[in-house]
Simulated scan of single mutants.
Amino acid sequence: MPASSVSSTSLAACAAVRTMPTSTSACSCNRWIRSAMGLGTTEQERMVLGQLSLLGASFPEMQQPTELDRLVVAQHFGLKTRLLDWTSNPLVVLWFACQDRQTGDAFVYALEADTLQKEGLYSRDPFKVDVTRAFQPRLNNPRILAQHGWFTLHRFSQRSKAFVPLDTNPTTVKHLTEIRIPAKRRSLILDSLYRHGISRRTLFPDTECLCTFMSWRYKLA
């Protein structure tokens, strides 16, 4: 589905829980913090994605028509990529922010994504984007569907030899808002979200996460 078919799009993501905000808070969106930050990693990314396609050829979810689709699947199942997870549902991002096992305040980031969308992104090389882009993935997997998933695709700056953080990117920083969630409210928010149908059971519709949910719901040791 072309991202441009959606207008007035507001997205939300959560950052790692921390006790105090830092100037690089929104940078935590770029999940692949590489050990060789001084080097371009595009060829390594292509190689890893190619290996994933070969080794996962028997998995139905890996039968994807484009490289960007394969990046979405890889990101969603834990591979480190140049994508960042977002959601169009603010209740979903509240759950992700508050369920983190770390202590301290949690932070949610809201992004006005209209100007970051571009038609035809799926037909382009995701490793050659010139600016950071937001896009809606194909709703072809239960987790993306349940989580109202969106993504941002981040460019690698050849000048600085690093990925461009959202909070220092002049194109995105003016559309980014930080919201702090006090640590003492996190448990209450999770209970409230459960009453409104938002929990691990509904966001991760599989047997493993259902069992994790049951342990949380009934406070099993």
Rank of each mutant, 00 (worst) to 15 (best):
P2I: 02
A3T: 13
S8V: 06
A12M: 02
A12N: 00
A12I: 01
C14N: 15
V17M: 03
T19V: 08
M20I: 10
M20R: 12
S23H: 08
T24Y: 12
S25I: 15
C27K: 08
N30L: 08
R31Y: 07
W32E: 08
W32T: 02
R34F: 06
A36R: 09
L39W: 14
T41H: 01
L49H: 05
G50F: 10
Q51M: 12
Q51K: 03
S53E: 09
G56D: 09
S58Q: 14
F59K: 13
Q63L: 08
T66Y: 15
E67K: 07
D69Y: 07
D69A: 02
V72L: 02
V73N: 01
Q75Y: 04
H76P: 12
F77T: 05
G78E: 04
G78Y: 02
R82M: 14
D85H: 07
W86A: 00
T87Y: 10
P90K: 00
V93N: 06
V93P: 00
V93I: 13
F96A: 00
A97Y: 07
Q102C: 05
G104S: 01
V108N: 08
Y109S: 05
L111R: 00
D114Q: 07
T115H: 13
K118W: 03
G120S: 14
G120H: 09
S123Y: 11
P126N: 08
F127Q: 09
K128A: 15
V129Q: 14
D130L: 05
D130N: 04
T132I: 07
T132G: 14
A134T: 06
A134M: 10
A134N: 02
P137F: 08
P137W: 15
P142D: 11
R143H: 02
G149A: 12
W150A: 01
W150E: 03
T152W: 00
L153N: 05
H154F: 09
H154L: 08
R155A: 11
R155G: 12
S157C: 01
S160I: 01
S160K: 04
S160Y: 08
K161E: 14
A162C: 10
F163N: 01
V164D: 15
P165Q: 04
P165M: 03
L166N: 06
D167L: 00
N169D: 15
T172L: 10
K174C: 11
K174D: 15
E178C: 13
E178Q: 15
I181N: 09
I181F: 03
A183R: 04
K184R: 13
R185F: 11
R186D: 04
R186H: 08
I189R: 03
L190C: 12
D191E: 15
H196D: 06
S199Y: 09
R200V: 04
R200W: 02
R200C: 05
R201Y: 13
T202M: 03
F204L: 02
F204E: 01
L210M: 01
T212F: 07
F213R: 04
R217D: 01
R217Y: 05
A221P: 05
